[in-house]
Structure formats: C-alpha cells, structure tokens
Write a protein that binds this DNA or RNA. Structure first.
Lengths: 141, 141
DNA sequence: TAATCTGTATATATCTATATACACAGTATA
DNA sequence: TATACTGTGTATATAGATATATACAGATTA
C-alpha cells in the first residue's frame, strides 16, 4: 500500500515530524480505518527515500499516542480512535494551520481581502494538482 | 529596539529558522527600512531567550542573502532591497503559507466552504490578539 | 526447518543550540 | 592625546537532537 505522504526536503521541519503529522492526519481524518495494515517500515522507508530508523521512530511515536498498534514479526496496524478525539484533533489542527497562514500574511502586510483571494487560488492549485485529468484520490495498493 | 518576533518553543521548526523567517519578513515586508539598526546580537538573544550564537547565525544567514549588513564593533543594519525582489518574495511566501494550510485542511477532509469559514475565524482571532484594546502595532523602542 | 517476511537494538555522522573566550570600534576622561 | 571602558561582532569547543547503516530477533510460510 502506498500512503499519500509528501516530504519537503527543503523544509527545516525534521523528516520524522513531517511524516508523523501526515500519517496522524490520515488516521484521525478517517482515511485509514481501524485494523488497516500500514506498510512495513522498510517499504515505507523505500517509498519516502529515507532510513528505516526514521520510519521506526514515527511508528513508535504514533504507537505511544495510541493511534497504531505494532507486533514484531507481524506488522503495524491502525488502532481504534474515539470519535471525540478525532473531532477535537481535526479542529485544532486545521484551525492552527490557518492561524499560521494568517500570521505570515500579516507579517507581509497582506490584508483580509488579499488573504481571501490567495486562499481561493490555493484551493484551485490544489484541485488541479489532485485531479489533473479527473482521476480519483484513493490510496493506491 | 524590540522586534515583533514570536517563537514557538513547541514547534519542531528550529529556532534559528523561525527567527530568520520572521526577520526576513519584516525586511522584505517593508516594516524595517534601509539603514535601520537591528538590535545587537546580545540584546535580541536576551529578548528571545536564546543563545547569542543562534542570533549570530541568523544575522550571518541574512547577510549572505544580502538583506542586512554587519560591521564588527559597530552593529548590524538593514541593507537596500530591490522592489522587485521584495514583491517576488512576498508573493511566494504568502502563497506558500496558504498552500500549506489548504494541504492540511484537505488531509482532514475539510472542504472549501469550511476552509473559508476557518480563514475568517483566524483573521478575527488575529485581530483580537493584535488590538486587544485598540492599540497600534508599531515596533517598540 | 530454511527462507523471508516482520519489527528491534547498537554505533556513527550531521545538524542545532549552547557557553566561554576573543577581537574590533566608539566614547569618556584623565 | 593617550588609554581604559563598554559597546559591538567573532571564533572555538561541547552537549543534545536528527538521520543513517548495520547487525540482531520474532513470526509466518513454503
């Protein structure tokens, strides 16, 4: 299974954290449901062009959060997530994301009207990138 | 002079980079103009509760970008910035900020309508934080 | 039971942040 | 007009976080 995770190598945000944030999003966002087997650490490391140890750390962190369950020799699986936790995290995360964008905009003397325009443009760019020829957005096997 | 720089100690983004991004924003955003003396590395380190070395690195990086000019024994000053460079960087940076916010939103199954609502909320939150009792946003001496 | 999946542990290199000691430039003042 | 003082940026050495390679151990299957 290929996970839709994008790494920005230019970013100063550590790899392990970029992966954690996105994988946590897939689980709490409901795109990966209880019991789903995650790719093996070697498979995901190869897919993301990083070390096995880095993926290992990500899985360990998320297991400590109770989001996944791992069994040596067998694999790693998505754990059960309470609806309440899912909703709370969802709201917090997305609200913070927009808070940071607004912060940057203000720093560059960008008013509300220009922010709204930039949001629309970002939405369109995202749409075009995701559906270049009308394809779906399923997680590939 | 106190610079309006906010550090998030929880964030995995390195300190030096958080400072760089925000100081670069103040210069390219036009809030700090050519010739303005920046605080000494010790003063800013004290203000931000970090090491002198960290500020030193920030100033060095920004000097390599040509945004500031430093003279031993005298201090560090804002350099001349071409209008074209200023505009280009401004657009790139703010557009990227919104691109990342949209990326996070999509990851959490958040549609355009909810994004617009969250943007408005973030703008209001920012306004309230910045002008709690109608104060201005000048850079304090 | 050998092969080959799975996760785990140890040792090492690079990056981030720091303390401490150093060198240059302006200013006060004897 | 020396020269000591206090401000500025600079360089060296060290601790901790991040990413890696390599070797190890459990689980499944041919």
């Amino acid at each position: 299974m290929l996970l839709p995770i994008q790494l920005s190598t230019a970013s100063p945000e550590p790899m392990y954290h970029q992966i954690e944030v996105q994988l946590r999003g897939l689980i709490l966002g409901g795109k990966l449901t209880e019991g789903t087997p995650l790719p093996s650490i070697r498979e995901l490391a190869l897919d993301l062009s990083c070390s096995v140890i880095t993926i290992r750390r990500v899985y360990q962190d998320l297991e400590n959060e109770g989001l996944i369950r791992t069994r040596q020799g067998t694999g790693t699986f998505v754990a059960r997530v309470e609806t309440e936790q899912r909703e709370r995290n969802r709201l917090e995360t997305v609200a913070r994301a927009f808070g940071e964008a607004v912060e940057t905009a203000v720093r560059y003397d960008c008013g509300p009207e220009e922010m709204r325009r930039l949001l629309e443009e970002a939405i369109v760019r995202r749409e075009q990138r995701e559906h270049p020829k009308g394809k779906g957005d399923q997680i590939h096997e």
